[in-house]
Design a protein around this nucleic acid. Structure first.
Lengths: 209, 209
DNA sequence: TGGCACATATCAAGCATTTGCTCGGATATC
DNA sequence: GATATCCGAGCAAATGCTTGATATGTGCCA
C-alpha cells in the first residue's frame, strides 16, 4: 500500500547492472522472504535482509515503510496465486473427488514451490494473523475447499457423518505440515508425497461402498 | 542443569505465603509457558515473564541461567509425559488399530491439555530444533508411532503400499494443527475432534477389505 | 527463650548490545 | 540541473543479563 509513481525508473539500468526500481524491490522481497523463513520474523533484522539484498539497511526504507510492510508484500503474491489456482480447479472439475484431489495436489506443489512463504505463514502466524489483507485471502481459500467438500458430500461421494470444517482443517493440517519434513533435495519426489497424502486423505473421507 | 542444594528450602513458606524454592520455580515455568505461547519466544521479554510471575526480571536469574534455559524446562515436562504415555499405550494394546487409535487420542488430548507447550513447540520450532534434549525425545515419539504403524502393516491391518514415515508425518501434521483452530471454550468437545480425526486418518490407512 | 550466623530469596539500578528507523548528503543517470 | 537511488552515521528505545545491597526465614547454642 501507499505506492507512488516511483516505478518510472523501472526500465532504466545503470551501467553497473545492479537492479533499480521495481526490479530492486523484487530483489528485496526475495531477500526478505529468505531471511524471514530462516530466522523467523522477529528474529530477522533489517540488517540481515539488507545483507542478503546487497545493500545497507537504511536503503530498504526507500522502498518500504517498515519491516512489517515487507512481510506483507512477501506473502501477498503467494496468496494471490494460491487463491486463483484453487478457484480455477474448483470451477473446472465437476467431479468432487477429482476436484479435491486437484486441490490437494495444488496445495502440496505450492508448499514445495513457495517454501519460504509457507514457512513464514506457519512460524509467524502470531504476527500475521492481525494483518487484514492476509486473513481475508485465507478465508477465501477456506471457502473454496469447504464448498468442494460440501459438493462431494451432497453427491454422496464423501461421507456425510463428518463435520465439514473439521475435515477441512484436518486435511490442511496434514498438507501444510509437509513443509517441516519435506526435503526437495532428497530422494522423495513431490509426486510421491501427493500420491501418499491424497490417497490417505481421500480414502479417509470417501463414502464406504 | 547445575542445580545445587537450593531445594532445601522447598518446604518452607514465608509468612506472606508467596512460594519459594521449587514452588516458585514452577510458578516461573508456568508464567514463561504462557508468555512464550502468547508472543513467541523471541518476542517475549524476560520482563514479560517476570510480570506474569509477579516479580522483577532480575530475580528470574536466581532460578535460571538464561531465557533459553526457561523454554527448555517448559517443554521438558510435557515431552516426558507424552513419551511415557505413548510408550505405555503402544506396549499395552496388541491390536495395532486399537493402539494407533489410542496414540491419536492421546496426542489430541495432549494438544488440548498442554496448549501452551504445543504452541511453543510449533511456532518456535526454529529456536527449539537445535536443543538436543528435546530433539531426542521427539525422535523417541517418532519411533513409537513408526513401530506401531509397522506392526499394523505386517499384520495386514494397514495398507502396505504407503511409506510408513510419510504416513506418520501426515498423521502428526493433521493432529498438531488442531492447536491452531480448536477452541476449548467452543461447542466442539475434544472427544468429537478425536472421533473425526481418528475416523478419517484410520480409514485412510486401513487395508481395503 | 533470645540472639546470632547463615543460606535463601528478591530488589533496584544499570550496563552493553541490538534493533527499527531517520536523515542529510553523496553519487549516478538522463 | 533534476530525479532516482543509496550510503553513512547515528539516535532512541528495548532487551538479556549482571551486580551489590537488602530483607527474610532457619538452625543453633547459650
Amino acid at each position: 500500500m501507499s505506492e507512488s509513481g516511483k516505478q518510472v525508473g523501472s526500465k532504466r539500468r545503470r551501467s553497473t547492472g545492479s537492479p533499480t526500481g521495481v526490479a530492486r524491490k523484487e530483489v528485496i522481497i526475495r531477500a526478505a522472504a529468505t531471511v524471514f523463513a530462516e530466522k523467523g520474523f522477529s528474529n530477522a533484522t533489517v540488517r540481515d535482509i539488507a545483507d542478503e539484498a546487497d545493500m545497507l539497511s537504511g536503503s530498504l526504507y526507500y522502498y518500504f515503510d517498515s519491516k512489517e510492510a515487507m512481510i506483507e508484500e512477501v506473502l501477498a503474491t503467494y496468496l494471490d496465486l494460491t487463491v486463483t489456482g484453487y478457484q480455477r480447479a474448483a470451477d473446472e472439475l465437476e467431479n468432487p473427488a477429482e476436484a479435491l484431489h486437484e486441490l490437494i495436489s495444488l496445495a502440496l506443489r505450492g508448499v514445495v514451490q513457495y517454501r519460504s512463504e509457507v514457512t513464514i505463514l506457519q512460524n509467524d502466524w502470531h504476527y500475521i494473523r492481525p494483518i487484514a489483507s492476509i486473513a481475508r485471502r485465507q478465508r477465501e481459500v477456506e471457502e473454496i475447499w469447504l464448498s468442494t467438500l460440501d459438493r462431494g458430500t451432497k453427491a454422496g461421494v464423501f461421507r456425510g457423518d463428518l463435520d465439514t470444517r473439521m475435515v477441512y482443517r484436518t486435511l490442511m493440517g496434514a498438507i501444510q505440515a509437509v513443509i517441516r519434513w519435506y526435503d526437495p533435495r532428497g530422494k522423495v519426489t513431490v509426486d510421491e508425497v501427493i500420491a501418499v497424502q491424497s490417497s490417505v486423505l481421500l480414502d479417509g473421507i470417501r463414502s464406504p461402498r
